[in-house]
Write a protein that binds this DNA or RNA. Sequence first.
RNA 1: GCGGGCGUGGCGGAAUUGGCAGACGCACCAGACUUAAAAUCUGGCUUCCAUCGGAAGUACGGGUUCGAGUCCCGUCGCCCGCACCA
Length: 860
Amino acid sequence: MARYNFRETERKWQEIWAARRTFAVTEDAARPKYYVLEMFPYPSGRLHIGHMRNYTIGDVVARFKRAQGFNVLHPMGWDAFGLPAENAAIANRVHPRSWTFENIRVMGEQLRLMGLAYDWEREIATCTPEYYKHEQKMFLDFLKAGLAYRKESWVNWDPVENTVLANEQVIDGRGWRSGAPVEKRRLAQWFLRITAFADELLDAIDGLERWPDKVRLMQENWIGKSTGVRLTFDITTADGEPGPAVEVYTTRPDTLFGASFLALSPNHPVAGTLAETRPELGAFIAECNRIGTSEEAIETAEKRGVDTGLRAVHPFIDGHSLPVYVANFVLMEYGTGAIFGCPGHDQRDLDFARKYDLPVIPVVLPPDADPDGFAIGIEAYTGPGRMINSGFLDGMTVDEAKAEAGRRIEAMGRGTRTTQYRLRDWGVSRQRYWGCPIPVMYRPDGTVVPVPEDQLPVTLPDDIDLETPGNPLANHPTWKYVTCPETGGQLIRETDTFDTFFESSWYFLRFTSPDSTDTGFDRSAAEYWMPVDQYIGGIEHAVLHLLYARFFTRALKGCGYLDVSEPFAGLMTQGMVTHPTYRDADGQWMYPEEVEERDGVLVGRSDGRPVALGRLEKMSKSKKNVVGLEEIVGSHGADTARFLLLSDSPPERDLEWSSAGIDGAWRFLNRVWRLVEEPAVPLAASGTPVPADLAGPALETRRLVHKTIAAVTDDLTRFHFNKAVARIRELATGLGELEAAAEAPGAPVVLREGVEALVQLLAPMTPHLAEEAWQALGHDTVIADQPWPVADASLVADDTVTVAVQVNGKLRATLAIARDAPQATVEAAALADPAIVRTLDGKPVKKVIVVPNRIVNIVA
RNA sequence: GCGGGCGUGGCGGAAUUGGCAGACGCACCAGACUUAAAAUCUGGCUUCCAUCGGAAGUACGGGUUCGAGUCCCGUCGCCCGCACCA
């Protein structure tokens, strides 16, 4: 019995595709374009099954669209800057560049083993000066356009990575990669003005119809738009002297009559000034800064404050003033860093008021509440209602009162209605070596001098000391000293490098013209290929990379680079590949292959010591729960692995990796191979016409062939790969049955048609096998160049349909009946069915519902 | 706390979006072929009663409907995102 030889076959076709440049593309205005892109990997060392799933999904889409006649761009490259290279450099005493390029070499070989339809001529690595010089130019353009600026501010400091992190890179108060609790530091940093696009980024989400709702919602929440009022309170000191006015931001100006205090952030300038003469206030502020903003800290920290002695003059109530506190729960980074507290209708304000015994005045009466007996207990009321205790607002709804209060404040000249965002500018400075140098210099007085464009790129020095703590570029003895091109005086280079999300914010543009030397990308090429039609990657980038790239593309548009706003028209977030984790007796992570089961107990393969089974986690190098590519590709071949990864779970769902399914996938591919290579019935010659009078099993099978073509086409269009696999399996079974009925008239012709269709439908998923089978079927073409099969509509719809017959909603019989038969005929046939007659048992029929070609329900 | 999602056999999952629940596969069981094993093929596989055949069943409780896995209300459980955002 013929066994499919995957080793020879896979190598053979990979060589043929490469030699024929099958997947190399150029712009072609005559054909519709389709840009498929998988999020490019960080070259961490080796590829695992999780990567493989991502690339297999993209490859099926690319090959499918290509067969459908699209001019398909499907490139691959390396997100090659990043801290792990520095850590590896220290651990292994190799240069980060050598480590990175060695990983790229190894992982590139792994990728090639998978038979992916990439245009390898477009491969890029972001750590090369040929790549990063262009982003230095982009940065200088952003600087000119006011989209990049430097400012001193409180930043997130990762004490393990020894660098600053952007807000998006802090997850639950911890560094997104190190997991270390983030500290607050005050540093001068470069920022990109993403907030200038807040509204546009938010509004355009509506147009991202082929993005998952979940990701759209996450971006919406991250941008966090709210509308409210900025309002200035006059302040008097304890002695009755005028003090520094305080501006607050509120979304609830309607509740002003219920205000009972003002609260300032500990980092508010007024608080700072007061602290100079008030030691106990200074101590309180210091304490607030010491406690982090981690989840735990917020959960446990109670609302506390210190009365400043200042009084805030109420804008609406003559002669009324409110105490001013410095409070630990007010953020300097949001709004104005100061709030007014209305305890009746905000839970935090209520907690604070109860602690410091401040008045609680209800100003919104819930719809069904008794006006006389309504009071606030321990829970603030935040719902709708009508205003009470509120002077000129009394009787209005909350919405009416918001509008009226806003108007009054503006009329009084005390403030303006504004829009506020949660989104903050993107801090891009990193105090690391292995990144793109920020192309600016400083005069001794701190003035910024952009590096002249003709001096780009600013490249990294090779001789670097990574072991000394601190910023490696700043520690370098000479690199940062340069002579001013204008004055001849000495300048100091910026020693920070860009956040590595900078590189991934435009790599998809670079892929459109990777050889462009003067500019990062060729404008006409970019405008031909962009936007990416289908982008595929992990959900973990829902706000990070995907938001940065959306911003970056707009910023480039603003600087005249191209006329595209949204980089990714379609997005699919594929689920993680998970695997159990293992730890040895000392708590160290173990690789799955180091563990085995003996007498129902997990033990170490080498030492027999007990192993603790951990929870399912995303495959990652750090937890060692990875299954390498070679293990599976080496034992069963790339096609088997690809087929298995597409088989059971829908792509957006997590997939627990187990080796159990591999045999099933391998069995199926061999079954297909036997249908091609040693059919029980010799296939008719290719192109033999199908007899017009085809009937019986051959006709039935032929219908199945065309139904399958239609269904698989639909499934692949919707990325329902698991369903497509099920359909293809059914087709193979059907063809096997026709082989068994060899004497059926027309069988050789239908088998020829069916086997060819089967192979073509499989081609995007198992391309090597499909090519080999195509050749074995006598073709001298490459299947990758074959057009996608088209179903004959007349064969897709059956002449006879099976209609279910229910009595009172319960299934009692099925009826084979001509398709689109008149309702009366269907009804009569249903009522005449013996099983129905028996069930009805003479009971009168009240009503009959007929759903054409589906179901009949008899109500008795 | 706020926002979102999910709950279907032993397991992964399917159900044309309100119309035959469990497609397809994994695992398992039985049989055929074989000296034997592997490979391959055939059949079985939600539960309960049973001979044909019936009854129940999509986390749980209710509702709408001729008809509900699908829609509505409530409960329980799990997962994800944000989080002192004024």
